[in-house]
């Protein structure tokens, strides 16, 4: 059981680091993202209360970091290890989890030109995809705030859960869907929409049934109460857990 979760956590290296890190200063805030061009890759920043932070750089759908989007605010949750450490002109937040807020904010439009000396670090290597062990009993998928989108990384976990379920032939499969709260550094609490619980659950149910797992075996449990809201680790509550029972 434990094992399954651990394997998941290390599925994507940033999350792995995040789950185990307690060092550094936790920051969480909502802001307009800023994109800065550079000779290498464009980098993504955000400014909050006069301080500019470095979030990450442009990559591809296989990258561990998915950058923010202009026209949307970004929710940033992460740790500052060293306020002197900067990239592209912003204080590095690492590990970091970001969410693109779904509603439009047309005020978020800042695109800065490249400037000498302001470059992103070498790209973080793509996460490695080790298959889950065939006796894994529990799979976890984490979501962006107010999102049910299964990115490439998340569909891989879903695909693995189905693969393993087909091997184990469990008597029962439980899909637990949750939603979370996020406490910002200024004390504000953001709460995910109630509808997310159902949407996350329904999407995963459709994946299982679409991949020929019998409907009758699947039990969907929607946990409506928003969890977390304490700061560090809040991102872990925007989740879905798949449990296989003999």
């Amino acid at each position: 059981m434990r094992n399954g979760i651990l394997i998941f956590c290390c599925w994507i290296s940033t999350f792995c680091a995040f789950a185990q890190t307690t060092t550094g200063k936790y920051v969480a805030f909502l802001a307009c993202p800023i994109v800065r061009d550079s000779k290498a890759m464009p980098c993504w920043l955000a400014e909050k209360d006069g301080t500019t932070y470095y979030l990450g750089q442009q990559g591809s759908s296989a990258s561990a970091f998915y950058p923010p989007q202009l026209k949307h605010q970004v929710l940033v949750e992460g740790f500052i290890q060293d306020p002197q450490k900067t990239s592209c002109g912003g204080i590095v937040i690492d590990p970091i989890v970001i969410s693109v807020m779904p509603e439009l904010d047309v005020a978020c439009t800042t695109l800065l030109p490249a400037e000498d000396g302001l470059e992103p670090p070498a790209p973080v290597p793509f996460p490695k995809y080790e298959p889950f062990s065939d006796d894994t009993k529990e799979f976890q998928i984490l979501y962006d705030f107010d999102s049910d989108y299964l990115t490439l990384h998340k569909t891989r976990i879903a695909g693995e859960a189905v693969r393993v379920a087909k091997i184990q032939q469990p008597a029962r499969i439980e899909i637990h869907a949750y939603r979370g709260k996020s406490k910002l550094s200024d004390g504000t609490i953001l709460e995910e929409k109630l509808a997310m619980v159902h949407r996350r659950a329904e999407k995963m149910f459709d994946v299982f049934v679409g991949l020929d797992i019998s409907k009758e075996k699947i039990k969907v449990i929607e946990h409506e109460k928003a969890l977390g809201g304490k700061g560090e680790g809040d991102y872990l509550n925007r989740k879905l857990v798949i449990k296989l029972y003999k």
Partner: peptide
């Protein structure tokens, strides 16, 4: 731009 590739994307 909306599938994790950044908006804008160079």
């Amino acid at each position: 731009n909306s599938i994790g590739l950044a908006n804008p994307l160079r």
